[in-house]
Design a protein around this nucleic acid. Structure first.
Length: 800
RNA sequence: GCGGGCGUGGCGGAACUGGCAGACGCGCCGGAUUUAGGAUCCGGUGGGCAACCUUGCAGGUUCGAUCCCUGUCGCCCGUACCA
């Protein structure tokens, strides 16, 4: 047969659809497999090769598992709220609903053209009111349980998108959506108290199977540290400066304090501060600094001494100066630190610059040259001098602080609470009503979904308020509690909201009385295998684990962790080895490949490119190689004969079944395909194969190139769909060759090979080795010192 | 700085975690077919004339190291004054 992709792909896609071949079955007696890939944001640009590679992972696994008899749930949906759509809508003056529907339609068509075996009967769309009803429902449950709060603080703000961003959304100081530099702005915003779940998110990692680097990144992001709070009294006032430290045992080495420029104590002590104008000037400079200046130009420490106030060290009683400096952040710990220049590099740099005393309290370094951050015995530290290790001295210091009532043990997290509102139109409305009498009142559950009103103008307001604020009919409402006039919240949720629980909806997508029925959840959850990009490890993964864990605490979901296993896809780079981008002009359109070479070629090539988890450059000529391989497989129908397989070919088949079966489960698609290519080479050499063997071949290839394999199956008279036919089995005994070739080394260097029966013992191997021509020659006149024989591996003769 | 990862032919990458380095593919060379090109098929292909040399570099452990250890250089990703 000849491989003509254009003629067969649509045909099989239609047949699969007509047969509902890939819809998850309600038969709950079968073992289940829930494979999840990150649902796409349906941008106007259409499918990207990145999507192809990301989805091919569990596509191949799911297809194989289906053939192995699993009840497979392999769903897809659309994460369709968000700024890109909204910005596009503004630009083209088209309603985001229209844009979204068009994009979803386009994505659907494109995904289907690649032949993914998604369950299209369970598609979710986060912008569908029947879906976001439950997003709002979960939000209200969180509100009910005290996990939602409003606060007036400094937030990350994108001046271009005109929205507040969470920490996760502004990693590296740049807006996640447009890349603009993020500025700090004082605003009243909604928060989700994710920090309350920090410990659960951390401990939950112990019971899941994520790649080690994924776990590590989450651990780092949560950033748990242990230490203590301590109160430093401000001399002559009732004020106390509360600090957080991980090394309370170094307290006798404290020679000054530093507070963040935004620290509120400055305003409270305004009257006592002698150099207030200088302080104000410094605060102004700091406020104007961009993220870049604050983080990149860190070498030089700046700050101002606060004249007129001093603090008292709670353990030593010493009076010390207080500085204001922007190397102390308001957002971490308490916004104030005790500085121990002898044992902290930043404090050391600051002390050197400002000529402050440096007092050694841990022996082991040379504090005249640099801060010593290692361990050692305590010195100059009163009662702590008795200790010579970190653990004991910290414990003793905390005990002392506690006993004197000036401090206590404490835990801090780098992770911050989740800034949860956006001042934009295309998102889930936050279902809260502001009542002048009752305060914040949740929209009653029975009124959900709180629908987005239709508006003409989606432009965000200049003052940073949501477009919804201009919609009087939406804003004005009655308070559900007292019935009086009230106003609706006009901000919407961030894009991460809808994606924080979508995998639950897949389990039971049509449920009208719950986000998903417990029955369905008990069967399908947890997700057995989740694959996606590394960029989501500290965003979406953290958020959705938080939401899921919260629902677990409520008794709404059956297990503590949503994702049993998580793997990551490596980037597809441009042909020049650089990251694909429009500006670099190195973008490959996967649909072009489908048109030119067929979906099966695209799929096979993407799998064959290299290590699945690593970045790999695109190669147009290698794509042709994949096509050539499929051509050869198609041509193999001519070699199918009733009889005539060699023992070598039979063994090759068993080996290949074993290897492909194992490799797919490890996402080692490149070597699985290499094994299939080797097999095809072997068949070519043998000149013929049986029909059964041919069917085994196309079954193994089916997860990668399903259209072609279905067609070939039909060509050789196969009944039904190959995609649902049983996966090939192998016989371990038959994977073994009768004879093996073994390397013979002399002094560790290869000097010859011997061919011996598979089970040959040491003596036989040794004899064969010594009889080998080249070996015998090399042994001539030498003294044999040692013989190393590892059956099945090697013979090494050590001579002198 | 810290955390994670990676350095193997001209290229993408293999190699049972200590046992014949370079599977498989791309590219390249030669041949067949073709009026020609393309496509296809067959053969060859790490370097060196050779002895030999080769997994970023330098050491170490071992009968034996791409794999383990020490040091060093380079690249990528994440994070960032986290007290």
């Amino acid at each position: 047969m000849k491989y003509e992709p254009q003629e067969i792909e649509k045909k099989w896609q239609d047949r699969w659809e007509a047969a509902h071949a890939f819809e998850a079955s309600e038969d709950r007696s079968k073992p289940k497999f829930y494979g999840l890939v990150e649902f796409p944001y349906p941008s106007g640009a259409g499918l990207h090769v990145g999507h192809i590679k990301a989805y091919i992972s569990l596509e191949v696994v799911s297809r194989k598992r289906r053939m192995q008899g699993y009840n497979v749930l392999f769903p897809i949906g659309f994460d369709a709220f968000g700024l890109n759509t909204e910005n596009y809508a503004i630009k083209t003056k088209t309603h985001p609903r229209v844009v979204t529907d068009r994009n979803i339609e386009n994505f659907t068509r494109q995904l289907k053209s690649v032949g993914y075996s998604f369950d299209w009967s369970r598609v979710v769309d986060t912008t569908d009111p029947d879906y976001y009803k439950w997003t709002q429902w979960i939000f209200l449950k969180m509100f009910e349980h005290g996990l939602v709060f409003r606060d007036h603080t400094l937030v990350n703000y994108c001046p271009s998108c005109k929205v507040v961003l969470s920490n996760e959304d502004s990693q590296g100081g740049h807006c996640d959506v447009c890349g603009s530099e993020v500025v700090q702005k004082s605003k009243e915003v909604w928060y989700l108290r994710i920090t309350e779940y920090a410990d659960k998110l951390l401990s939950g990692l112990e019971e899941v199977d994520y790649l080690p680097n994924i776990k590590q990144q989450q651990v780092n992001w949560i950033g748990r540290s242990t230490g203590a709070y301590a109160d430093f009294a401000v001399k002559g006032t009732n004020e106390k400066l509360k600090i957080y430290t991980t090394r309370p045992d170094t307290m006798f080495g404290v020679t000054f304090m530093v507070i963040a420029p935004e620290h509120p104590v400055i305003d409270r002590l305004r009257d006592r501060i002698a150099n207030m104008p200088e302080i104000e000037a410094y605060r102004e400079i700091c406020a104007k600094k961009t993220e870049f200046e604050r983080t990149q130009l860190v070498k030089e420490k700046t700050g101002v001494k606060i004249e007129g106030i001093t603090a008292i060290n709670p353990l030593s009683g010493k009076e010390i100066p207080v500085y204001i400096a922007d190397y102390v952040m308001m957002g971490y710990g308490t916004g104030a630190i005790m500085a121990v220049p002898a044992h902290d590099e930043r404090d050391y740099a600051f002390a050197k610059k400002f000529g402050i005393d440096i007092v050694e309290v841990i022996r082991g370094g040379d504090i005249s040259r640099e801060a010593y951050t290692g361990e050692g015995p305590m010195v100059n530290s009163d009662f702590l001098n008795a200790y010579d290790n970190k653990k004991d001295s910290i414990r003793a210091a905390i005990e002392a602080l506690t006993a004197r009532g000036v401090g206590e043990a404490a835990v801090q997290y780098k992770m911050k609470d989740w800034a949860f509102n956006r001042q934009r139109y295309w998102g889930e409305p936050i279902p809260i009503i502001h009542c002048p009498h009752c305060g914040m009142v949740p929209v009653p559950y029975e009124e959900l979904p709180l629908r987005l009103p239709d508006v003409e103008n989606f432009e965000p307001g200049e003052g940073g308020e949501s477009p919804l604020a201009k919609v009087e009919s939406f804003v004005n409402c009655k308070c559900p509690k007292c019935g009086g006039d009230a106003r609706r919240e006009t901000d919407t949720m961030p894009q991460w909201a809808g994606s924080s629980w979508y995998f639950l909806r897949y389990c039971d997508p049509k449920n009208e009385s719950a986000f998903a029925g417990m029955d369905a959840l008990k069967y399908w959850m947890p997700v057995d295998w989740y694959n996606g990009g590394m960029e989501h490890v500290t965003r979406h993964m953290i958020y959705s684990r938080f939401w899921y864990r919260f629902l677990y605490d409520l008794g709404e979901v059956p297990c503590r962790e949503p994702y049993q296993k998580r793997t990551a896809v490596g980037l597809v780079l441009g042909p020049n080895g650089e990251k694909m981008s429009k500006s670099k002009g190195n973008v490959v359109d996967p649909l072009d490949v489908v048109r030119a070479y067929g979906a099966d070629t695209l799929r096979t090539y993407v799998c064959f490119m290299g290590d699945y988890g690593m970045a790999a450059p695109w190669s147009d000529s290698a794509v042709k190689g994949a096509k050539r391989f499929l051509d050869r497989v198609a041509a193999m129908t001519d070699l199918v004969k009733g009889t005539g397989s060699t023992p070598a070919l039979e063994a090759a088949f068993h080996k290949t079944v074993k290897k492909v079966t194992a490799d797919i489960e490890e996402l080692k698609f490149n070597t699985a395909i290499a094994a299939l290519m080797t097999l095809v080479n072997g068949i070519t050499e043998a000149g013929s194969l049986t029909r059964d063997e041919f069917i085994t071949l196309i079954k193994l290839l089916c997860p990668f190139a399903p259209h072609l394999c279905e067609e070939l199956y039909e060509t050789v008279g196969g009944q039904g769909l190959l995609s649902l036919a049983p996966w090939p089995e192998y016989d371990e005994e038959k994977t073994k060759d009768a004879t093996v070739e073994l390397a013979v080394q002399i002094n560790g260097k290869l000097r010859g090979t011997i061919t011996v029966p598979a089970g040959a013992d040491k003596d036989a191997l040794l004899a064969a080795a010594k009889a080998e021509e080249k070996i015998a020659a090399a042994l001539e006149g030498k003294t044999l010192v040692k013989e190393i024989v590892v059956p099945g591996k090697i013979v090494n003769l050590v001579v002198r």
